[in-house]
Design a protein around this nucleic acid. Structure first.
Lengths: 248, 248
DNA sequence: ACCTGAACACCGTTCAAGT
DNA sequence: ACCTGAACACCGTTCAAGT
C-alpha cells in the first residue's frame, strides 16, 4: 500500500526498517480525542486507549509520561484547532474590503469579527464536550487559548474600548462561551435537545408541581425551545455584546 | 460523654438502645461535601468518605445505593442551599415596601432582584467548586435548581419581557453564571487570583512572545486584574442585563 | 436494620525484561 | 529506542457473615 518503489536489494538496508508499529504522539492523541468524544471521559482509560491503538498498555508510556500529559496534549491540540479557523473568520469579517461594506469599516466591523470568533470557540467546545471536562479538571499549562484571546483583545480595542474595558469584556465573553457550551453539552449528555428531546424537556418542565413552580410550568414550551444550542448562544452573545459595546 | 442520665435498670430496655454509631444520610452528606470542598473531586473516594466518618467502607452502602446516589444528593443539597437565601434576597429587593423606594416599585426593581439572585447563585457555585465538577459529570435527575429558575422567570416577566424572551434570558443568565463560576474555580485551582496570584498571572501574560500575542502582552496588567471573581462576574452580569433588559 | 471484612474486577503506573 | 507482561497500590461494588 504505502510501500516505496522497489530498489535493488543489494544489502539489507542498514537504515532502520521503519519501527515495526509506528506508534507516535500524533496517533496516540488521535485515539485519545476519538475515545473522549465517542465514549466519554469515564471510558478514557489508558488500557482502552492502548487497545484502540492495537498495542500493549505500556506502549503509550514510551511517548507520554502518563495520563496527565496526554490530557494536556489533547487540550492543547483542540484549543489550537480553535485558533486557526477562528483567525480566518476574524480576518474575513474584519477586513476593510469586505464585500457589502466596501468603504466603511466603521465600528460595526470589529463587533462582527468578535461575534464570529466567539461563535467558533463555542462550536469547537460544543463539538468536543471532552475538552470542557478536561478544562474543569487540570490546570492549563501551555499557551493554548492565547491566540484567540489575543485576537479578541485586538478587536475589542479597535471597537473603541479602553484597555481595562477590553480586558473585562474579553474575560466575560470567554466566561459566557464556556458556560453556554458546558450547558449544551450537559443537556446533550442527558439525551435532551437532540431530536424530540425538546418535547421530552417540555413535558418534564410542564410536569412539575405548578403550585411550587408556577412560572416554570407556565413557560415550559418557551424554556424547552430555548435549549437549542447555537441559537441560544447567539441570543445571549448578542445581548452581552450590546451591553459591553453598545449603550453600556 | 453522650451517655443519657442513669435510669433504674429494672430491665434491659426492650427499646433499641440507639444504634451504636448513628450513621445516617445527613452525616454522610456532610462528610461528602466537606471532603469534596477541602480535598477536591479526586480525593472523593468511598474509602476516604468512610474513613472520615470513622466507619467501615461498606457502612455507607447501608444508606446510599452507591457513589452516584451520593453525588446526586450532594448536588441536590447544595442547589437547594441556593434557593433559600436567594429567595430572601429577591423578596427584599422586589418588595414594594423596600426602604428607599417606598412608593415606586418601577421596572428597576425586578432587575435589582434578578441581579441579587444571580449573584447568590454565583457565590454558591464559586464557594463550592465541587458542585461545578458534579454538574459537568452526571445528569441532573431531581428538581434541584428549579426554585431559582422559577423565581428568575417570574422576575423577568415582571420586568416586561415576553414569554420567549424571558425563557432565553433566564437560560443566558444561568449559562453565564455557570461559566463565570467555572472560570473562577479553575483559576483558583491553579493557585492564581488568590493573594499575589494576580501578580503571578500578570508576569505570565507579560512573558509571552510579544510578536505572536501583542495585545495580550500589552494588556497583561488589565487582564490579570480582571480575574477577580465576583467583581468580574458583576461586570459581565451588568452588561448581560443591559443587553437583555435595556436597549436590546 | 446496621455494619464488617474478604474478594472481584477494574484503574494508573513501576519495573524487569525482551527486541 | 520501542514495546511487553507481571506486579503494586489503588478504586467501586458484591457477597457472605456478623450483631
Amino acid at each position: 500500500m504505502t510501500k516505496p518503489p522497489v530498489h535493488p536489494p543489494t544489502r539489507p538496508t542498514p537504515r532502520r526498517r521503519t519501527p515495526r508499529n509506528t506508534l507516535n504522539r500524533e496517533r496516540v492523541l488521535d485515539a485519545a480525542v476519538s475515545l473522549l468524544d465517542h465514549e466519554g471521559p469515564d471510558a478514557f482509560t489508558m488500557r482502552a486507549l492502548a487497545e484502540r491503538l492495537g498495542v500493549g498498555t505500556m506502549a503509550v508510556y514510551t511517548h507520554f509520561t502518563g495520563k496527565d500529559e496526554i490530557i494536556d496534549a489533547v487540550r492543547e491540540r483542540l484549543l489550537a484547532e480553535i485558533a486557526l479557523p477562528a483567525a480566518e473568520h476574524a480576518e474575513h469579517a474584519g477586513h476593510p474590503g469586505h464585500p457589502g461594506h466596501p468603504e466603511h469599516p466603521g465600528p460595526a466591523e470589529p463587533r462582527r469579527a468578535v461575534r464570529a470568533l466567539c461563535r467558533s470557540v463555542y462550536r469547537l467546545l460544543a463539538d468536543h464536550p471532552s475538552v470542557l471536562h478536561l478544562l474543569t479538571r487540570g490546570p492549563v499549562r501551555g499557551d493554548e487559548g492565547t491566540a484567540v484571546v489575543d485576537r479578541l483583545l485586538g478587536l475589542l480595542l479597535r471597537s473603541g474600548m479602553d484597555r481595562s474595558a477590553a480586558a473585562r469584556a474579553e474575560t466575560a465573553l470567554m466566561q459566557y462561551t464556556v458556560g453556554a457550551a458546558l450547558w449544551t453539552a450537559s443537556g446533550r449528555r442527558r439525551g435532551l435537545a437532540h431530536q424530540n428531546g425538546g418535547e421530552r424537556l417540555r413535558t418534564r418542565f410542564a410536569g412539575l408541581p405548578a403550585d411550587r413552580f408556577p412560572h416554570l410550568v407556565d413557560l415550559a414550551p418557551e424554556l424547552a425551545s430555548a435549549q437549542d444550542g447555537l441559537r441560544q448562544y447567539e441570543h445571549g452573545l448578542d445581548a452581552l455584546l450590546d451591553g459591553l459595546l453598545g449603550a453600556g
